[in-house]
């Protein structure tokens, strides 16, 4: 019985170690994906900022697109969702028309259930 218990304890310790290692790898990989997603979202934000007049920003509301991060022979595609809404002076969503709009770009990736990055930028009239 004692020897069986010793083997069980050793096996449990090994299992815990392996689970912890896998969790660490998952977090490291997620961190890399977040940095990649950050790059594609910021680029999309800059392009919208450059090409869109303040009055036309609503045209982006509800749109979705895909964008890829490419480097080092790796190409990772991200799904981007864009929302635009009026916000008040405190940056809170406003039903009424105000003099500033907030554009939000959210990046997701099929490998991850949760949103990877979420960038906001305020545009003023």
């Amino acid at each position: 019985m004692m020897s069986f218990a010793a083997m069980m304890i050793a096996a449990l310790a090994a299992f815990n170690q392996m689970t912890s290692q896998l969790q660490t790898y998952d977090e490291m990989i997620r961190g890399e994906y977040e940095l990649m997603a950050n790059a594609v979202v910021l680029e999309r934000m800059e392009v919208i900022d450059l090409t869109t007049d303040y009055e036309d920003l609503e045209d982006w509301n509800g749109t979705t697109t895909t964008a890829a991060f490419e480097a080092g022979g790796v190409s990772v595609s991200f799904d981007l969702a864009i929302t635009v809404e009026y916000v008040d002076e405190e940056g809170l969503p406003s039903e009424a028309e105000t003099d500033q709009k907030e554009l939000v770009i959210t990046a997701t990736q099929e490998k991850f259930l949760m949103t990877l990055v979420n960038h906001r930028r305020l545009f003023s009239e």
Binding site: S3, A6, M7, A10, A14, Q17, Q21, T24
Partner: peptide, 23 residues
Amino acid sequence: SALLVSTAVLLMVLSTQFTAQRS
């Protein structure tokens, strides 16, 4: 049998330790 069990336990512990260090 005691020797076999103790060797198995020792190997498992060493393996876990090695994996932890590498990680």
